[in-house]
Design a protein around this nucleic acid. Structure first.
Length: 707
RNA sequence: GGGCCCGUAGCUCAGUGGUUAGAGCAGGGGACUCAUAAUCCCUUGGUCGUGUGUUCGAAUCACACCGGGCCUACCA
């Protein structure tokens, strides 16, 4: 295969929000990007890896306010923490910027002017509710009031559960801010919109034909957003807002999703300034309209929309280079489930680093990442087994078991006959490289491990330990066998270098010096010294995993969840905190499937207002798979509508009249079929199909509190 | 309800039309003792979700169904 000419690649990961710490979920993206970049460099290409903290928006503003410090202090502290985490995971950014930088402000302005020149910006009055006490405009979910159509109380700002009407929050009767409890004012504010529909044709064509977007994603886009006119993109937020004020619209700030992707460019600009390079060489187009460099964006599947529609639209409008490839990955699950604080599987990068070697996770992720958008599962048992078997047992072991025989003699003067092993693995080089290039790291790892298996088998067949005991006449043969083993080891270290930079360094220190190029895997070494062997990687012990999980549980306790108040999924039938049962002959499966939640205080418990309630009405929701619509009475004339996930387990008619336990102060949850104003407590879990409602002893009355 | 993905050995997966379907881990047996109880060899284990079709030939293509997941459901 001919050597490809040097490529120039600009590679990014999505910008982490400066509102929380890096966790193992984030690392799925940063590690795979880092592996990709290191691979490209090893192949001799110029690849720069750029990223930045995403710093703007309401969430940052509110959090800084709550912590009694400035936004700048908050984002500076978070930036430091992010950088430490990335560095310790051996993620080698060429530059790590911030969206709150002069360079970003400048570039936002330039892109903005480009949008203006193209006539893509329009201004419209927007009526919005404003909380005079909190001093912020309120999103729909922060307003409650009485439905203007049917008079139903306690409804959210956008739709009424009782009559199904939809409306704007300004139409609500007696609105209340859920932030402060104050009565919001209707304020009129100017918003700026980008008429992205003007680029509809371009976007439809680009997503379909450019090769930048996976066909599955392109298909999804064409069926959703591109199937109808694209709505104007509301790109501004009125003060107060933490962000950049729009130069030609005083009092208006760019929405965070405008300045975040520009942060890719700002980071490039800052890097260029350090290097004496030009931004245009990376983001510009040449005379023929072709991009001057490749641009690869690694993102999670949740932000596809921004990177395949808005961002290309902005770049196109500004006449800049469009992304070469938008590489989309799924989310992380741990032990097959969403990361959970109470299970101790919500693991921060820092917590991991306190217990385990970053290389282990780098390898495990690499072995699981195949370039698709499916979620990636971190199974802790498999993690332990795989890393121990592959990295320690196979690869590191090659050097560990043979290097000692070469410390005195060095490698044989010419590479011995190894039965074609080295050549065979060298021939795999291009296949492995193609897999890396395609983002199918799992395939690359499989091929590498097969080579490691062959190498170990070779050592077993040659039995160098017998040669070592055989005396001087076997010395040359011993040196040859060990030289083969060490060469095969170093060859693997080259292939693994993008994933395990540490191992590559150690291999270089052992023999042959730093690994600088992929082609080193094709040339065996001979006649050079071998350093004294240093242990390369330590096995993962079960106890380390256990203490990592335990530490993650207590870390979750110590730091309350950061970020926007995201509601839990369908507020139906499961509870996280189940009381412990006395030991018995009952099966252990339910408890094992869902271990006890972390300890909570009596005050924590008191936050949950559990009440006895009587089901006064129950009806099928024909379109719902799992839900029944219940109306429950808390006594007197207080009733609640609750959607409970018990369809199929209970007949509606049989439920009417019975007493149940409800979570009475649960935040209402808008569901497809209406608003759910609470949750009926029921038991469920492993070991049995079904959802089991709780009933009180005789004598209990609706409205009584559980304590 | 709509869209997409997946269903292959106990587990994790490879194999996308062509000889008797493979790997790793786990299980069983053996070898070795250089190595971090690592390594090597042998071995148990599969109606390739089900059915129908296309084909000389189907894990692979088509259709239907069953099961699991993700995304949507007038939010971007």
């Amino acid at each position: 295969m001919p050597t490809s000419p040097q490529r120039r690649l600009l590679v990014t990961s999505a910008l982490p929000y400066a509102n929380g710490h890096i966790h193992l979920g984030h690392l799925v993206e940063y590690l795979q990007t880092d592996i990709f970049v290191r691979f490209q460099r090893l192949r001799g290409h110029q690849a720069i890896y750029l990223c930045a903290d995403d710093t703007h928006g309401t969430a940052i503003m509110l959090r800084a306010r709550a912590e009694g410090r400035s936004e700048q202090e908050l984002i500076a502290a978070m930036r430091e923490a992010h950088l430490a985490d990335f560095t310790d995971f051996q993620i080698a950014f060429d530059h790590y910027g911030s969206t709150d930088s002069p360079a970003n402000r400048q570039l936002c302005g330039e892109l903005w002017q480009a949008l203006r020149r193209r006539g893509l910006v329009v201004t419209r009055e927007v009526q919005q509710l404003y909380d005079p006490e909190a001093g912020v405009f309120l999103a729909d979910r922060f307003v409650k009031g009485t439905c203007p159509k049917c008079g139903g109380g306690d409804q959210y700002g956008d739709a009424c559960e009782q009559c199904g009407a939809t409306y704007t929050p300004t139409e609500l009767v007696d609105p209340v801010s859920t932030l402060s409890g104050a009565r919001p004012e209707v304020r009129s504010a100017e918003h700026l919109f980008v008429t992205i529909e003007d680029l509809h044709e371009f976007l439809a064509q680009w997503t379909r034909d450019s090769g930048a977007v996976d066909p599955r994603i392109a298909n999804y886009l064409s069926g959703h957003f591109l199937a109808e006119p694209l709505r104007d993109w509301d790109i501004s937020r009125p003060a107060p807002y933490f962000g950049f004020e729009i130069p030609d619209a005083p009092g208006q700030y760019w929405y965070v999703w405008f300045d975040a992707p520009v942060g890719y460019m700002a980071a490039t600009e800052e890097w260029c300034r350090q290097q004496g390079d030009r931004l245009d060489d990376w983001w510009g187009r040449d005379e023929t309209g072709r991009p001057r460099a490749e641009i690869h964006h690694f993102i999670g599947k949740d932000i596809v929309y921004f990177h395949t529609l808005f961002w290309p639209a902005m770049l196109e409008a500004a006449g800049l280079a469009l992304p070469t490839k938008v590489r989309v990955h799924g989310f992380l699950t741990v032990n097959g489930q969403k990361m959970s604080k109470s299970r101790g599987t919500f693991i921060l990068a820092r917590t991991y680093l306190e217990h385990l070697d970053p290389g282990m996770l780098r390898y495990y992720y690499a072995a699981k990442i195949s370039g698709g958008i499916d979620d990636l599962d971190l199974n802790l048992e498999e993690f332990t087994a795989k890393v121990n078997a592959d990295i320690v047992g196979k690869v590191a072991n090659l050097a560990s078991r043979t290097a000692r025989w070469l410390t005195a003699s060095g490698l044989s003067d010419s590479y011995p006959d190894d039965g074609g092993l080295f050549v065979k693995a060298a021939a795999d080089g291009e296949t492995i490289a193609a897999a890396y290039e395609a983002g199918d790291f799992a395939r690359a790892m499989r091929i590498v491990m097969l080579a490691a298996d062959r190498a170990n088998a070779y050592i077993d067949a040659e039995q160098p330990w017998k040669l070592a005991k055989a005396g001087p006449e076997a010395a040359a043969r011993l040196q040859d066998v060990a030289s083969v083993a060490i060469n095969l080891f170093r060859q693997l270290a080259v292939y693994l270098a993008p994933v395990l930079p540490q191992l590559a360094e150690q291999a270089g220190a052992l023999v042959g010096g730093p690994i600088r190029h992929w082609s080193e895997a094709a040339r065996p070494l001979a006649g050079i010294p071998v350093a004294a062997f240093q242990p390369l990687a330590r096995r993962i012990e079960q106890a380390q995993i256990e203490s990592l999980v335990a530490a993650s549980r207590s870390a979750a306790e110590a730091s309350p969840p950061a970020g926007s108040p995201v509601l839990q999924t369908s507020g139906a039938s499961t509870m996280d905190e189940t009381p412990a049962a006395p030991p018995s002959a009952d099966p252990a499966a339910p408890l094992e499937a869902e271990p006890l939640a972390e300890e909570c205080t009596i005050d924590d418990f008191a936050k949950v207002d559990l009440r006895i309630a009587r089901i006064v009405a129950a009806e099928e929701v024909p379109e719902a798979r799992k839900l029944l619509k219940l109306n429950v009475s808390l006594g007197g004339d207080v009733t609640r509508t609750v959607f409970a996930g018990i369809k199929g387990f209970h007949e509606p008619a049989a439920l009417v009249g019975r007493l149940v336990v409800v979570v009475a102060n649960l935040a209402p949850r808008k569901m497809k079929f209406g608003l759910s104003e609470g949750m009926v407590v029921a038991a469920s879990g492993a070991g049995a199909d079904g959802v089991f409602l709780l009933s009180p002893d005789a004598g209990a009355l609706p409205g009584m509190r559980l304590r």
